[in-house]
């Protein structure tokens, strides 16, 4: 493998956890709810994966457990924000704090224990003949393919299905959606639960593929980068793929420079993703300064039928 292939492979495996979390966030925000708990959900997903996989090395069971944990925590967020109409930002922050604390407590027994051979590689030999991207696509792990599939599925959902249109209506104008007989509560609960499960899956992917050892706080802000990527991708699944690949590459490049023995202290290389996140958001804000925002119009606003807006 030449270095471009290596870089792309590493960038993809660093970007996939972000992609799952970003897609989950897009799904939730499209329905009009903000979920800032991505960091806590990713940690809970990672620790669940570590606990289940070390107990019984069954990948299907592990993923199922991770999705259930994510959905249950999502249910909590949905109950607080949709039914009780609590502040969505605070509920998300609580999710992050609760998730990081609980994951550290639960994961104590498996901290530092390595997981071996956890994510199977899908070998597709016929891709090998393609230049540059061929060798990358030929040996991807199953989670990366799943994330690609999700990008396509969500793109189709939003643009080609009735369910997707209803979902966007709920996020843009819940009052009108309600009049049309669409249950705002049902769609928001479903999206928050499914999206939170995807965020947890992102954490599980980080653990099972990217760095197969549970360490307390191992997401290191990736959940927040995913929240930034939702805005960067302008709530579009395809742009989320591009954005996460970009951040995956950033992660990888910093690490490579460090390995190559560069004179730049590693601390500054590790700052790159965080600083670039801010710069990218500034760029997005500057470019869309004269355009109406593409954010769902009812984002962050609780819906109350008696106060239909």
């Amino acid at each position: 493998m030449d270095w471009i292939t290596q870089l792309l492979t590493a960038g993809l495996s660093a970007g996939t956890p972000l992609l799952f979390a970003t897609l989950g966030g897009i799904l939730i925000e499209r329905s009009g709810v903000i979920q800032l708990g991505a960091e806590g959900l990713m940690l809970m997903g990672a620790v669940t994966a570590a606990l289940v996989y070390l107990w019984t090395p069954n990948l299907v069971l592990t993923v199922a457990a991770v999705l259930v944990v994510g959905a249950v925590l999502g249910l909590l967020h949905a109950f607080l924000t949709v039914s009780l109409r609590a502040n969505q930002i605070v509920s998300g922050l609580a999710m992050t704090l609760f998730g990081s604390g609980l994951s550290a407590t639960l994961g104590q027994s498996v901290a530092g224990a390595p997981l071996v051979g956890s994510a199977p590689i899908v070998n597709l030999a016929f891709f090998d003949s393609l230049p540059v991207v061929g060798p990358v696509l030929a040996h991807l792990d199953i989670f990366t393919w799943l994330s690609f599939l999700l990008v396509v599925a969500m793109g189709l959902l939003f643009t080609r299905t009735v369910i997707g249109l209803r979902l966007k209506a709920v996020g843009d104008n819940p009052g009108t959606a309600d009049v049309m007989g669409i249950s705002v509560t049902f769609y928001r609960y479903a999206c928050v639960m499914a999206g939170s499960a995807l965020m947890a899956l992102g954490g599980a992917d980080l653990l099972l593929v990217y760095s197969p050892t549970w360490i307390q706080g191992m997401t290191a802000g990736r959940g927040w980068i995913a929240v930034a990527l939702i805005i960067f991708s302008q709530w579009s699944p395809l742009r989320a793929l591009i954005g996460t690949l970009f951040f995956g590459l950033l992660d990888t490049v910093g690490f490579r420079i460090q390995l190559a023995g560069s004179p730049v202290p590693p601390y500054f290389l590790k700052m790159i993703p965080y600083v670039v996140t801010i710069l990218v958001l500034i760029l997005v804000g500057w470019r869309s300064r004269h355009r109406p925002s593409s954010a769902p119009r009812a984002l962050g606003l609780p819906y109350l039928r008696e106060q239909r807006l």
Partner: peptide, 9 residues
Amino acid sequence: SMIQGAILF
């Protein structure tokens, strides 16, 4: 921090 999160919820 787990307890803090629970209190906040």
